[in-house]
Design a protein around this nucleic acid. Sequence first.
DNA 1: CTGAAAGCGCTAACAG
DNA 2: CTGTTAGCGCTTTCAG
Lengths: 340, 340
Amino acid sequence: MSTSEHGKHTPSVTMRDVAKAAGVSVATVSHVVNDKAGARIGAEARRRVQEAVAALGYRQNALAKTLSQGTSRFIGLVADAIATTPFAGQIIHGAQDEAWKHGYVLLVANTDGNTAVENDAIAMMLEHQVHGILYSTWYHREIVVPEALHQTDAVLVDCFADGSGLRSVVPDEEQGGRTATEELLAAGHRRIAFINTTTPSPAQSGRLAGYRSALTAAGVGFDESLVFPSEPAQEGGYAATSRVLASGATAVFCHNDRVAMGLYDGLREHGRRIPEDIAVMGFDNQDVIAAHLRPPLSTVALPHYELGAAGVRVLLGIEEPPAPSLQLRVACPPIQRESI
Amino acid sequence: MSTSEHGKHTPSVTMRDVAKAAGVSVATVSHVVNDKAGARIGAEARRRVQEAVAALGYRQNALAKTLSQGTSRFIGLVADAIATTPFAGQIIHGAQDEAWKHGYVLLVANTDGNTAVENDAIAMMLEHQVHGILYSTWYHREIVVPEALHQTDAVLVDCFADGSGLRSVVPDEEQGGRTATEELLAAGHRRIAFINTTTPSPAQSGRLAGYRSALTAAGVGFDESLVFPSEPAQEGGYAATSRVLASGATAVFCHNDRVAMGLYDGLREHGRRIPEDIAVMGFDNQDVIAAHLRPPLSTVALPHYELGAAGVRVLLGIEEPPAPSLQLRVACPPIQRESI
DNA sequence: CTGAAAGCGCTAACAG
DNA sequence: CTGTTAGCGCTTTCAG
């Protein structure tokens, strides 16, 4: 260790240093390090520059570059809850991968849903000259757009705000509900119960609509008495067990994996085997749960990674949500395991 | 909508614009917007500047500022898996909150454990003049440090590399194991089984050491035959059930919550009630699982949020890991629920 | 083919 | 108290 403390702090080799070492001008260096198209640089000069770069360990200063070009390579991601759920992480992951792919870098901020923090976060991103902002929530819902968001290009991820004029990317709840139901139908079930959440949300109405449409399309018909309300957690699924059993259903589509997990418990207590006696379908594909229940739970995945990735694509103008909703709906694919 | 497309793209009001509008120089503007200590600015001038700022909607350009000051406000976080687990998100969250608190901004990158990506990520961060880098893994382990990391200030989070000279922040596995065991001891148990993982890791040895020391300290003594090997997932806990039962233990400390979840299943099949017939203690406090098992699982929490936060504190020199290990161990607190 | 020079938006002495 | 003036590291015409 030559330096004191831990700081290997930037001896900062600049372009000028490289230029001097290579015996050329900074303009030339700039051209070779950026592989400028229109710039015809002599083989000899180019070689000398490259050698100098290697020798000195030169690295561009992305900030200076941004300043001089006037265009930044940052994309901001403000989330209401990075951590409350395993899901949020996937959104970050998808956004980061996609941003990276296009040469952008992600600036993240967590706000815990606090409006003041939210505004600060957005302000900070604006000061950093972000190209745009991804505003995401950890579960699909309608939001009221923070005022500050309008000062830049923004796209909503896993949330939406009708009439705001903002583009958004959300999971296709209806298609998801339909898919889940179709899986059960395909296994031969005709009497399919649906334990739905009592919380009003796009998930509640969308999944129900999907369930209904799949049933109808299969000529089975929708039976109101087969849908059971429940809080969207283990406790709710457990509590719904006897009613579901009493309905004579041979399969049950649960609003989410946690409900399914509770139902598993209830079913077991009633001595029912899954899937022999009754099939169970979840929703969300919450890994820690779904993949490890016994039997592993068949479910439908919430495409969080894709939401994040699609968010940056929309922001960069690579993809365009259809008018008039300006919502890009991304599919929720079925995950087959052993509960059907 | 006045502008075409979605771009409210930076009309960019600069300091010069403000200066002109306020009839002062840019230096004056700089002083008032930064509330410079030593700068005595007349009340009148200050007011005019503030008005101009408000009127024009001026916002600092953080990048230009950085460039001129030579010191950036970025902290990089490179993670091997942002999303694979609910945990990683908490590290980001903690790091982000703490960084923010000190006026820093988090730049995140996910590498999926891919070395090439890792180096690119680090290079990118260096180009952005980060103040330093937090290198984190999603489970506590020893790593080999990417070469590039040595080119800046770095601290390891949830991992370590003895002899690398790098400071790290890790969970205190031993204290965690001790705490878990003590909870069981406090409930009056004397014959306490331990289902440990078969995977060598700081968690494996640390939790065992803690279990052992708690037992010894309580005068109960360590009994090798009470520790059962298991893969660290539901399946392992389930499989260990009969052996555990045969041992006559009245309580069992599981290597993690997932193992506990599997054990719950096994115990139920054997007709044992928790905690009446046998007490169960987990580890990790994996929310989706622990809080919603029936009965809710008592466990010990892995302090991911704190790891992230402490990581930035160490990076900023606010906290200093003790030599010679250079490891800052953060406590794993017990979470009491109803399985004991 | 290559170099000089003018900025990008802001800060920091240093003069007045 | 406030304005001038150099840069920070890089890009980008525009000459040569």
